[in-house]
């Protein structure tokens, strides 16, 4: 074992290790470093006492300050609500029509509605409400299945279409072409007539016209103008919900008469609050074809 000695140059003790005459100094840590070290130790102990830190058998120490990140969040949300308070109060009492009439409220609703639309609605209805051909209706035109007034749009968003919600919009088209209601030939004739309606050249006196009058007008109305109460789309224009991009109109109509597809939309009440739904209704109404 080597011996520790005082180094004559630095005045420090050596560690006693020696390699080929080279000795190792045992220089103590700088004072500032030692003080900082002890300060961190004291800080840690204080932190254990002040903040939630130690696990116990079934629980954990809550800390004297009672800090909780979730409580913090709730306070933040409360502060945010308060900051928006004046606006929220106006929205709470205003109907969608009131909001659309008041220019400042309208601006607020359009901005808020756009954000919420992007997160919640655009997955189906597309950015800006362009829709998906053959699947989800376009909201940026003036063709409405369940109605295009502010109140009608609000109701559709709130309760949705053909879902489990008790107030959801409901209707069902019968599979006229399946079973013995219509023969294949009649389905073809009916489809021809419906396509003629959509091109504004109704084939008067055709066999399809008679079938249409008998089977279809209860919902789609005379002349195929449709019924918003029943969600029966207008057939007297070239806007089709179920026609894919590369599909012939007649093929689609035959398919729909034989095995009707029914669109469905979730109810947003519960997931979104009333104010957000109002903003969305105003935003959708503004996309191009609000009535």
């Amino acid at each position: 074992m080597a011996s520790m000695e005082k180094d004559s140059v630095s005045g420090q003790m050596t560690t006693g290790h020696e390699w080929d005459g080279i000795k190792e100094l045992n220089t103590p840590l700088p004072k500032w470093w030692v003080y900082v070290f002890w300060a961190t130790v004291i800080w840690a102990v204080a932190y254990w006492i002040a903040m939630p830190a130690w696990p116990t058998i079934n629980d954990y120490s809550r800390g004297m300050l009672g800090y909780s990140s979730r409580a913090d969040l709730d306070n933040e949300l409360k502060a945010q609500k308060q900051a928006r308070g004046a606006w929220l109060a106006k929205f709470q009492t205003a109907s969608v029509e009131d909001i659309a009439k008041d220019k400042t409220l309208l601006n607020y609703a359009l901005v808020g509605g756009k954000v919420s639309f992007g997160e919640n609605c655009s997955a189906c209805h597309g950015s800006g409400g362009v829709g998906v051909a053959g699947a989800y209706p376009r909201l940026a035109d003036d063709e409405w299945i369940w109605g295009g007034t502010l109140a009608e749009i609000e109701q559709t968003i709130k309760f949705g279409v053909r879902n489990e919600h008790a107030d959801s919009r409901q209707s069902e088209m019968l599979p006229f072409g399946t079973g013995d209601m219509l023969s294949a030939e009649q389905v073809g004739q009916l489809a021809d007539y419906v396509v003629s309606l959509s091109t504004k050249t109704p084939a008067a006196g055709s066999p399809g016209e008679a079938i249409f009058a008998e089977r279809c007008t209860a919902c789609h109305q005379e002349g195929g103008v449709g019924s918003k109460d029943l969600g029966a789309p207008a057939l007297n224009n070239a806007i089709w919900l179920w026609k894919g991009n590369n599909q012939a109109a007649k093929d689609m109509v035959v398919g729909q008469i034989t095995k009707p597809k029914h669109g469905s939309m979730p109810a947003w009440a519960g997931r979104l609050d009333d104010n957000t739904i109002k903003m969305l209704a105003v935003y959708v109404h503004s996309l191009g074809g609000g009535q």
Binding site: N120, S122, A123, C124, G126, S127, V132, A135, Y136, N163, G263, S264, M265, P266, R271
Partner: peptide, 22 residues
């Protein structure tokens, strides 16, 4: 859960670009 319809999920799973072009 409940945010989109079953129909949307099926279309989206088969080809996401069919419903969400971006």
């Amino acid at each position: 859960g409940g945010k989109y319809t079953n129909d949307w999920h099926v279309r989206h799973m088969i080809n996401p670009r069919d419903v969400v072009p971006e």
